[in-house]
Design a protein around this nucleic acid. Structure first.
Lengths: 212, 212
DNA sequence: AGAAGAATTGACCGATTGGTCAAACTTATC
DNA sequence: GATAAGTTTGACCAATCGGTCAATTCTTCT
């Protein structure tokens, strides 16, 4: 099959080098944004000559697109954790938990996203208007159903999702601020777990009807 | 007095030109961060030759510091709206409201802050570790007192403030995402007011004891 | 072993970067 | 209206930018 030929696995060495460039690019783009990043700096962190970088990724923009689209896929995976079939508490808790874990495990991805949005989302703009909007609409429907059946207080679902996105992403994007406020040390696993539990509890209390 | 001579008011024309450069710089730094911004682009937006920009602000870094410190002062003004003397609901509502209004009225300032933190806060790092930490500690004390007197549920105050900062700042930093999800149009005043009311209500419900 | 292709790299390119400078131009003061 | 000070600006600089290229080295296959 032709498609199988196209997917012929490259040598492991090649994949390794590509990944090294990719990871270096992620770190640099996350810190300096697209314009502020240089292929020279990325190559330096990947420990290869700049010319070699351009052999694997012809342009800075191609590399940026590859990095950005990868972040997008990670986002989509986490999105599925908001499950319609479970009850509101469980669905919301699972979703917030998944997004918190994402921020903890891949803060760089979150920062790449943040930089892209700050620029006006020139690359992922289409995705926002199509896939993300569709996702949001379908989840809004679910939330509205929960509200109608008295399982949630009357809220505008959209702004509730914004709160979740804002809070979870904050733990990745503003890590620098948190470190400064934590005596120069990153949040420990225990601290992060406390934060995660509290974020879930506070947001659930904020939208669940009083138990009267 | 010598200090008075130093503060000799410059001509109104000079102040106007300085302000034009300043505003152009704010917009550019907010969009591209420090490294991604160029003095040429700032000068272009201020509609002056680049050499003239360097007459008013000798270096790109000096201009950036001026812009950043201005953002900092705005933050400090809003911080005072968290008032110890009022009850928790009012203090928290007023503070969230003030930060939401800040995000609405000065999204650029918020984005400059975000870019600075994403870079690792090289300029405002000192401020974070001193003034901001002091502010946070004193407010944590107030919140803990409220918890002890049963006016708030048991929470770690710090992570509650992070939620507030995250959510309010999100309305400025991720405006591009919200616009994409709102049919390409910015949030109307009515939409923003709804969002603001809901954010306050949800967060208050999240930390106030049930009315049983 | 040797040919063919893939990968590596130093040298280099025109464009852009932050910043300088001297000459020209305005404005205030006497 | 002459002088001095403050302001504006095009031309220019070395350094860095994204990207190219030809020469070289390494792998793979027969």
């Amino acid at each position: 099959m032709a498609s199988e030929l196209a997917r012929t696995p490259r040598s492991a060495a090649r994949e390794g080098r590509e990944k090294a460039i990719f990871e270096a690019a992620r770190a640099v783009f996350a810190e300096f944004g697209f314009k502020g990043s240089t292929t020279a700096e990325i190559a330096r962190r990947a420990d290869i000559p700049k010319a070699n970088l351009h052999y694997y990724f012809p342009t800075k923009e191609a590399l940026y697109r590859a990095v950005t689209e990868d972040v997008l896929n990670t986002w989509l995976e986490a999105a599925s954790s908001f499950d319609e079939s479970t009850n509101p508490s469980e669905a919301i808790a699972a979703y917030i938990g998944a997004k918190m874990d994402m921020a903890r495990l891949d803060p760089i991805g979150s920062r790449i996203w943040a930089n892209e949005i700050l620029r006006g989302a020139p690359v992922i703009g289409d995705f926002l208007e199509t896939t993300l909007l569709d996702w949001l609409k379908s989840r809004e429907t679910i939330v509205r159903r929960w509200i109608k059946t008295g399982k949630l207080v009357a809220i505008e679902p959209r702004y509730f999702f914004y709160m979740i996105w804002a809070t979870t992403q904050h733990y990745a994007d503003f890590e620098g601020q948190m470190v400064a406020l934590n005596g120069g040390k990153p949040l420990s696993d225990a601290q992060f777990e406390t934060a995660k539990v509290q974020v879930i509890a506070t947001l659930l209390r904020g939208v669940l009807p009083s138990e009267t």
